[in-house]
Simulated assay, not measured.
Amino acid sequence: MKKGLKLSTASINQKSKNYFILIGILPLFLFYFLSKMIPSLSIFGDWLNGFQNVPGMTSSFNLPLSKLMDLYCKTSPLWGFIWFVFTFDQLKQKKITRKIDLIKATMSCIGFTVVIAYFFYFDNFELTSAGRPLKYLAVSDITLLFIYSGYYFITLMLSYFSFALIMFWIMLKKGR
């Protein structure tokens, strides 16, 4: 009988998951409301000039707000790692019958994360010149907030599950 571990998402404490997601996305709402209260966002102007050469997903409709939100969204893997460290002991460890299932899950999650990371972290992407749905969504500040909230949520979840699968793979190799 083979020993192994399987990630059980049902075992993640739902309340802590919601708190981590809410705390992670909350600064995006803060940036949005600051941009409404201070329309020029001159507070961040000098600071953002230092990050002009950092590739990312921006909108020329509101460049300062989109650049600020993009830079913040790049922190989601760090927040996913912190979330993983705090909730790792809450994950149930179940025996799996086939080792290939864990390998498939790990490789597909990591592969999808690498593709997402390339597009969002290492490539310049202008939303107003993108395909039709994004193009129409990128011309309003509120829809920019929803785009970046979704971007943050997706990268947060992918990083959390990538860290969890990698840890389970390491534990499987060590025979724990």
Rank of each mutant, 00 (worst) to 15 (best):
L5R: 11
K6F: 10
L7H: 05
L7E: 06
S11V: 03
N13G: 02
Q14A: 10
Q14M: 05
K15M: 06
K17Q: 02
Y19N: 05
Y19K: 07
Y19G: 11
F20G: 13
I23M: 09
G24L: 00
L26Q: 05
L34N: 13
I38K: 05
L41A: 08
G45C: 02
G45I: 03
D46Y: 07
L48H: 04
P55S: 06
T58I: 09
S59D: 04
S60V: 12
F61S: 13
N62F: 08
P64L: 02
K67R: 14
K67G: 01
L68R: 01
M69A: 11
M69L: 02
M69N: 05
M69K: 04
D70I: 07
L71H: 09
S76A: 00
S76T: 07
L78P: 06
L78Q: 09
W79T: 09
V85T: 03
F86P: 14
F88G: 12
F88H: 04
L91K: 04
K95C: 08
I96S: 15
T97L: 14
T97Q: 13
R98P: 15
K99R: 14
K99D: 15
D101M: 14
D101P: 13
D101R: 08
S108K: 08
S108Q: 04
T113D: 10
F119M: 10
Y121V: 07
Y121L: 03
D123C: 13
F125E: 07
E126Q: 10
T128R: 07
T128Y: 09
T128D: 12
G131Q: 14
R132M: 11
P133V: 05
L134S: 06
L134W: 11
K135E: 12
V139G: 08
L144K: 00
L145R: 01
F146T: 04
I147N: 07
G150C: 02
Y151I: 02
F153C: 01
Y160E: 04
F161R: 11
L165H: 10
M167C: 05
F168R: 08
W169M: 06
I170Q: 05
M171I: 12
R176H: 05
